[in-house]
Design a binder for these strands. Structure first.
Length: 731
DNA sequence: CCTCATTGAGTTTTT
DNA sequence: CTCAATGAGG
């Protein structure tokens, strides 16, 4: 009976799936059947009776990956995957913290802040401390807090070396206190709190260590220090941990992912089994050869070479466009041609390094009447009207939630302006209580007091009328009773927002059915039958943890537009990688970072390996960015792919750029020049410098002794040079 | 208290 | 360019 499960696995996959009870590291290259190995391993373990579905834990980074895993498992096994511990790091931690909220020192209905909520709270805390937010940007404070939490550090244990970090740490400490009093946790807190819970509570730790005999980790290369430590705690001495990852696809170092965890894992878990999955079932040979050649330039690799038996296929197509608009038009033409050849638009992906690039592409696709779908926009639970509705629901569930209160106390407007809110905050600070409590005590005088009193009555009324109702009716009543519906009915642009509010009611209704709100759920489930609003709390947690689908798709057969980051894990028949220019991809900010170029190169590797059959790489000589035209050079990554694998559609392999005025096409920018006695320098002109090498003039000003040019050097980046001193040569 | 105008800053992203 | 955050004026 097991044979059908294992059919069609290659020897390495088979070995990984049928490993005995031991920890192991699987290096799974792009398109090598990683998810298949993970899910088949789980099915095999259960089917052969080595472990019950309760005794294993599988952890992923995204909800999508977790869902995919559950779907595939239930297709292989006749079991209800509901009770299984398969989920994201954050989802699983949430589950543990709900089950043991007392031990974790959290209120029953603790709420989860998404990063926007978190930033708002950080700002609020900073204002309370009187921190100058010009000198100490709130975003940096947020980064500081999350960074330390991800390193496992509380404010009390952070070592501050300079005034700067000392001040940020003051904010961190105050932020911690505020979260605790409001009963809210941010994403990093879910992990840290859970980690502390397991570390502190020996009984609990022993319980879970005994329970989870098998732990499987997806995308292991993306784990941060805290997640790794959490895994170690949960695994204890005896659990078999199967870590699946690909060091070449580590593209999240910027948010704390630590590739060092792979080496640490081999050491800490005394791994003697490293299995490499190198056979690729996705791409044609030329694509893989290009990816292999590119990634071989990275020095810090565990080493891996993908191969395929699918044949070489087509060469990579390279296109040089005069402007970003021309690049977009080229992509439109090519995609139309592909479509004529029978390829669905949904099988084509258009990738870019940064979201700002999507605008021109979208515009051109739109004018051409090609349907497309952009990933990475505002997601459902992040929309303004939804956040407002959720804030009402949060306040109904947990009145101490100052963030929710501030969001809606005057929305829709009810005559509570900044002045009243300041008074309320002031009074709360003096009394040391939440805004809600202060508001209830009606210690405020005059008009402000009355308006706030009305608001308090509104929320209390909502809470009263809603208690005991099924979830979807709670949401419906609150959306109605809050006045949000009325507000958007009168607003002229409010139709879509109204639809979204209706959709929120629908989401609540389907949440009950699909997402397993079940009061009889086993211990450790997300629902506590003692809490009258427990369904609401689960729903709110769901909203924060799974922000919902990105922007709805425009049609069934739509071209897929996304950043390279969000393309990880996906594959397409045809892929366009656009904007391959120095400064964009690799991004200029990463050029000076430690190992920045290596991470960009891995990003490029991920981009290349998304394609099954056809791959286009394009770049533009000039591009509108931040409202002004910028000139760049072709990305160094183009030079790192063997010329033999490429077909240059319209350019020379030598990456030399003629100046715009030498070209016979395109629209020229207003030529700005710098003049010296030696001659005139022009934007777009190629130059070489004895020290900095080759580059392009991107800006020029002045004459004579004051003449300066800004040059984008391919190796050293952007520099302003005074022409009087710099030994600049044309060409 | 609300609305309009000006100013400034601007990778990558999931949870 | 375009979004977000301040400040002046109704």
């Amino acid at each position: 009976m097991t044979s059908s499960l294992l059919d069609g696995l290659n020897p390495q996959q088979l070995e990984a799936v049928t490993l005995p009870q031991m920890s192991a590291l699987i290096l799974a290259g792009a398109g090598s059947g990683k998810t298949r190995v993970l899910t088949t391993r789980i099915a095999w373990l259960i089917q052969t009776g080595q472990v019950s579905s309760m005794g294993l834990l599988a952890v992923t980074f995204t909800n999508k990956a977790a869902r995919e895993m559950l779907t595939r498992i239930s297709a292989m096994l006749p079991i209800n995957p509901r009770g299984m511990w398969v989920g994201t790091f954050h989802g699983l931690c949430n589950r543990l913290l709900r089950a043991h909220h007392r031990d974790a020192q959290l209120p029953q209905g603790f709420q989860i802040l998404d990063s926007t909520d978190q930033l708002a709270l950080v700002k609020r805390v900073m204002r309370g401390l009187g921190v100058d937010d010009d000198k100490y940007p709130p975003r940096q404070a947020q980064w500081f807090i999350n960074g330390n939490k991800e390193a496992g550090l509380r404010a009390a244990s952070v070592e501050t070396t300079d005034d700067f970090s000392r001040r940020f740490n003051d904010v961190y400490a105050a932020y911690e206190r505020q979260c605790q009093t409001e009963g809210v946790v941010d994403f990093a807190e879910l992990l840290l709190r859970c980690h502390e819970l397991l570390q502190r509570n020996e009984v609990l730790r022993a319980h879970y260590q005994a329970r989870f005999r098998h732990i499987l980790v997806d995308e292991f290369q993306d784990t941060n220090k805290l997640q790794y430590s959490w895994l170690k705690l949960l695994a204890g001495r005896d659990a078999a941990v199967l870590a699946v990852g690909d060091d070449d696809q580590s593209i999240y170092a910027f948010r704390g992912a630590d590739i060092g965890n792979m080496a640490a894992f081999e050491r800490d878990f005394r791994i003697d089994k490293v299995i490499k999955l190198e056979q690729n079932y996705r791409s044609h040979g030329n694509i893989l050869d290009a990816a292999n050649a590119l990634i071989s330039r990275n020095r810090e690799r565990l080493g891996k070479n993908l191969w395929t038996d699918a044949g070489q296929g087509e060469p990579l197509r390279i296109y040089e466009a005069p402007t970003d608009g021309d690049e977009a038009r080229f992509i439109v033409e090519e995609s139309r041609a592909l479509h004529r050849d029978g390829i669905r638009f949904g099988e084509m992906a258009l990738l870019y390094r940064s979201n700002a690039q999507s605008r021109v592409l979208e515009h051109t696709l739109f004018s051409a009447g090609i349907s497309y779908r952009v990933y990475g926009g505002l997601r459902f639970f992040e929309r303004q009207e939804i956040k407002h509705a959720l804030a009402y629901l949060r306040l109904v569930s947990n009145p101490e939630d100052d963030g929710a209160m501030l969001r809606i106390v005057n929305f829709p407007t009810r005559g509570i302006g900044n002045r009243s809110i300041e008074q309320l905050q002031e009074a709360s600070k003096v009394r040391g209580t939440s805004l809600w409590q202060t508001a209830c005590s009606s210690s405020l005088s005059g008009k402000a007091g009355t308006s706030i009193g009305i608001f308090v009555k509104l929320i209390e009324g909502l809470k009263h009328s809603v208690t005991g109702l099924p979830l979807s009716e709670i949401v419906e009543q609150v959306v109605d009773g809050s006045g949000l519906k009325q507000h958007y009915q009168t607003e002229k642009e409010g139709t879509e927002r109204l639809e979204n509010l209706d959709e929120l009611v629908n989401a609540a209704a389907t949440f009950v059915v699909e997402d397993g709100y079940d009061p009889a759920a086993e211990r450790g489930g997300a629902v506590d039958p003692n809490d009258p609003l427990s369904a609401l709390n689960s729903f709110l947690a769901h909203a924060a943890l799974e922000a919902g689908e990105h922007q709805a798709g425009a049609g069934d057969d739509a071209m897929q537009l996304m950043t390279v980051h969000s393309a990880k894990g996906l594959e397409f028949q045809s892929v366009f990688i656009s904007g391959l220019e120095e400064g964009l991809f690799p991004h200029e900010n990463s050029i000076n970072e430690d190992n920045g170029i290596e991470e960009e190169r891995r990003l490029m590797y991920v981009a290349l390996t998304r394609a099954r059959q056809r791959l286009y790489l394009s770049y533009a000589q000039s591009r509108m960015l931040h409202g002004q035209t910028r000139y760049g050079m072709p990305s160094r990554f183009l030079d790192e792919i063997p010329e033999t694998l490429m077909k240059r559609l319209n350019s020379k392999p030598v990456s030399s750029w003629s100046s715009p005025s030498m070209r016979g096409f395109g629209s020229f920018p207003p030529v700005s020049t710098a003049t010296t006695t030696a001659g005139t320098w022009r934007i777009g002109q190629n130059v070489t410098h004895p020290k900095f090498g080759a580059g392009v003039i991107v800006n020029a000003e002045g004459r004579g002794a004051d003449a300066r040019v800004q040059v984008n050097f391919r190796d050293t980046g952007m520099k302003w040079l005074a022409l009087e001193y710099a030994k600049l040569a044309a060409g």
